[in-house]
């Protein structure tokens, strides 16, 4: 049987790879922020709801929270870690939410950049301040408790 067609030679791989951008990675920033939003959302559900149940609902509610209460509570590294994680995740989750809203609804590139940067700066500042307080808080430096 005579072969009327021979297999079509494949396109040179270099040209095709360049055309298809094989160098770019799959995933990247958008993938990871998307994954982060889901994981942090689940963690925040536990951390924030737990925080509300422990701090706001028992008898006295927020009225019983004062310097002494915090001083006693933060003697435990567990609660310091809890509060620090709550702050970090809430800030990152919230700032990333604002970033995506900006991406969705702010069209001029200059404004988009400026607003996103403002959110980053605010978020970073709050994260640093919060971390400094959680790490360095020492009630004895503030005089007698109560």
């Amino acid at each position: 049987m005579a072969t009327t067609t021979s297999p079509r030679p494949a396109a040179p791989p270099d040209a095709r790879e360049a055309a298809l951008g094989r160098g770019r990675p799959i995933g990247g920033f958008e993938l990871w922020t998307w994954v982060f939003m889901r994981i942090s959302g689940l963690l925040l559900l536990v951390l924030a709801v737990g925080h509300t149940l422990i701090m706001h609902l028992p008898a006295g509610g927020v009225d019983r929270i004062n310097f002494g209460f915090v001083a006693v509570r933060w003697q435990s590294p567990f609660w310091r870690t809890w509060d620090w994680m709550l702050l970090m995740l809430a800030l990152l989750h919230g700032i990333n939410g604002l970033r995506t809203i900006t991406l969705d609804y702010v069209r001029p590139p200059g404004w988009r950049f400026a607003i996103t940067m403002a959110f980053y700066v605010i978020g970073f500042t709050l994260m640093v301040l919060g971390t400094v307080i959680v790490v360095t808080f020492d009630p004895t430096r503030w005089g007698p408790i109560g």
Binding site: L20, G21, R22, I26, G27, G28, E30, L103
Partner: peptide, 9 residues
């Protein structure tokens, strides 16, 4: 390649 394109912003 399509997944790369679709994982961009």
């Amino acid at each position: 390649e399509r997944m790369k394109i679709l994982s961009e912003k």
